[in-house]
């Protein structure tokens, strides 16, 4: 991180005790840093002296009037009749059935049309996964974007690469490719497992984001573990915490 970020973190009180001691020592040694620090300090002093303007008296009287009206109105309560609820439910049921039928139909016709083409793509993908170069393997993973419905072989290849590839850049690409199929149970299970094994921060954040967007409840335990772990960077804990909020809808 650059110097300015460090200065800002210090002035914002975002450093741990050890970090700020270390920073203060650096300040003493480094005249350039010290000068930069002084300009920020001057600016922060100004910012912290923001002067308040007074609103006019009408703001208060308008609010009082608003509240009075609401208090009067709230005494008349409204009720939702049983008949209303029944109508809404019926419409919703019809809609849901419609969507389900439609989905099924489009998927079936899609699969039968390009099956042989798929087989070719899968073998190409597997072949390229053995590439020596990182960008070559990432390119191989991109092939999966051409599958609109999940192919077992494709998912297996992606999961294998997310678990085992030595390059975090490739693992990240695998997580993102799998994200397209995040509705599949096999993918979700693999994500949750990887959550407790992954060491690279970026890949971890990607995993946390997908799992929380999909509201995968099985991820709650490992996420909680991350937020409490000692050896995990603060920004990952933040993301994990945010993930928990999204899943649990706090």
């Amino acid at each position: 991180m650059n110097k300015e970020n460090k200065i800002i973190d210090y002035l914002e009180g975002q450093m741990s005790f050890e970090e700020s001691i270390k920073f203060e020592q650096e300040l003493k040694k480094d005249p350039v840093l010290k000068e930069e620090f002084a300009t920020y300090q001057l600016m922060y002093n100004e910012v912290d002296q923001i002067k308040l303007e007074k609103p006019s008296i009408t703001l208060k009287s308008n609010f009082d009037h608003l509240l009075e009206t609401e208090i009067k109105n709230s005494r008349k309560t409204k009720t939702l009749t049983f008949r209303n609820i029944r109508n809404v439910a019926a419409v919703a049921a019809i809609l849901v059935i419609g969507i389900l039928v439609g989905q099924n139909w489009t998927q079936r016709s899609f699969i039968s049309k390009i099956d042989s083409h798929n087989a070719e793509l899968v073998s190409e993908m597997k072949r390229n996964m053995n590439s020596e170069s990182v960008s070559g393997r990432i390119e191989a993973l991109q092939v999966s974007h051409q599958f609109k419905s999940p192919e077992n072989e494709v998912l297996k290849t992606l999961i294998k690469s997310m678990k085992n590839d030595e390059s975090p850049n490739v693992r990240l690409a695998a997580v993102e490719a799998l994200d397209n199929f995040a509705k599949e149970e096999i993918v979700r299970t693999a994500f949750v497992k990887q959550l407790s094994q992954e060491k690279d921060p970026f890949v971890l954040i990607a995993l946390i984001n997908t799992l929380s967007e999909q509201k995968v409840e099985k991820a709650i335990d490992p996420l909680q573990h991350i937020t409490n772990a000692n050896d995990v960077a603060k920004f990952i804990k933040d993301e994990a915490h945010m993930g928990l909020i999204k899943i649990e809808k706090i």
Partner: peptide, 17 residues
Amino acid sequence: NINLEDVTGPMSIKTVY
């Protein structure tokens, strides 16, 4: 921060902050 100039790929760059 990562700054690349007159490059062609292939490449894979990732950074958190």
